[in-house]
């Protein structure tokens, strides 16, 4: 009995998901909802399978992934560089504070029209928007993290003879690694959001373009199948790559 409950507990998220899908299918099959707007799970699944079988989706996944990878890498590196710069030159941080406030004022995805107008409908505008989104998150996470490094640990290292370079190498950078990894995990979803929103507003390929094409042709199955792939990639990257990395990186951080 206890075992059954355990199995049921573990399966319950899946049961809920299946029930939702069944309800959706049933509602459209029995005329409670209009499949022209809502589509059907079976229709969407068939379309997803079709895109995989024909290889149609590959090119679009590739484009979006390239945009994210380039922007994400550049944004993480730039955010790290500026965070360390701010930390070791507090004077600069002080003067740049208003810019950081502006940068942080709203989710960066709203800048998509600006990016498309300035950098065109090609891949560059998406890379730049992803870069900006990731840069902002990395900068804020890491800079806050660096300022929170335990005062006693720094004092202790100084008494033991550490100079500024020793402190950076043995104290600040290892402490920062944890924050960098957590920023990387935080920003991956934002990176995909930025890329796709930017593609929605002006692109000729990519997952966002598929969704936009589905929207203008009033094909909800296209929208859903496109979003399915976007969601699948984010979930795979987040749960299979970054989450284990975060756990590993903080193995000494046991509270």
């Amino acid at each position: 009995m206890a075992r059954l409950r355990q199995v049921l507990g573990a399966a319950s998220p899946w049961l809920i998901l299946i029930m939702l899908l069944l309800a959706w299918q049933g509602a459209t099959d029995f005329g409670l909802a209009d499949p022209r707007y809502l589509s059907r799970p079976t229709t969407v699944a068939a379309l997803i399978w079709d895109w995989i079988r024909t290889g149609f989706i590959l090119r679009h996944v590739e484009v979006t992934v390239i945009e994210v990878v380039v922007g994400y890498t550049a944004g993480t590196l730039a955010g790290m560089a500026v965070a360390f710069g701010f930390f070791f030159f507090p004077r600069v941080a002080e003067l740049c504070d208003p810019m950081v406030v502006v940068l942080n004022a709203a989710p960066r995805a709203i800048l998509a029209p600006f990016a498309v107008l300035l950098f065109g409908i090609g891949l560059l505008s998406k890379m730049m928007l992803v870069l900006l989104a990731v840069f902002a998150i990395t900068l804020l996470n890491l800079y806050t993290g660096l300022k929170e490094v335990d005062r006693t640990i720094v004092d202790n290292a100084r008494v033991m003879g550490a100079n500024q370079r020793d402190l950076a190498r043995h104290v600040y950078i290892p402490a920062a690694l944890v924050w960098i990894v957590s920023a990387m995990r935080n920003s991956i979803g934002h990176a995909f959001t930025a890329a796709i929103v930017c593609e929605l507003l002006g692109a000729t390929e990519g997952l966002g373009w598929i969704v936009a094409a589905g929207q203008s042709a009033v094909k909800p199955d296209w929208i859903m199948a496109g979003l399915f792939f976007a969601a699948a990639i984010v979930v795979i990257v987040d749960f299979l790559v970054l989450a284990p990395l975060e756990r590993r990186g903080s193995h000494w951080r046991v509270f």
Binding site: G9, S12, A109, V211, A212, P220, L227, A231
Partner: peptide
């Protein structure tokens, strides 16, 4: 929590702002 938390965690990871076209269609 056992039933919903996994769904919430996945839902939280999704690029939700990109779902705008779907909601406009609906």
């Amino acid at each position: 929590s056992r039933a919903l938390l996994p769904l919430m965690t996945v839902g939280n990871a999704l690029p939700r702002l990109a779902f705008a076209p779907l909601l406009i269609a609906w």
